[in-house]
Amino acid sequence: MSERYRTGDRVRTSTVDPDHHTRLPHYARGHVGTVVGHDGVHPLADLSAQGIQQRQQVYLVRFCARELFGHGDHSVTLSLWEDYLSHE
């Protein structure tokens, strides 16, 4: 499966608040982070919840706390499906 993003790439998360299940938490929406690794290929949770199986690359994306919350010097790393991301 082709990978759209590589380790070190800067990516922005989607701002969409869908009316179906998703695994992109509110606090991580519309923010810029850095791909720090790949986390396997898994069925996209948003579609699985609708009975559709579509496997897709998942990325480990690290965000600075200041980017997410406007304060803090820690980082937060999430596993995000390719559909949640765009190139920054």
Binding site: S75, S79, W81
Partner: peptide, 8 residues
């Protein structure tokens, strides 16, 4: 470093 087990 906080790790969110938000996916698989």
């Amino acid at each position: 470093r906080v790790w969110d087990a938000n996916a698989e």
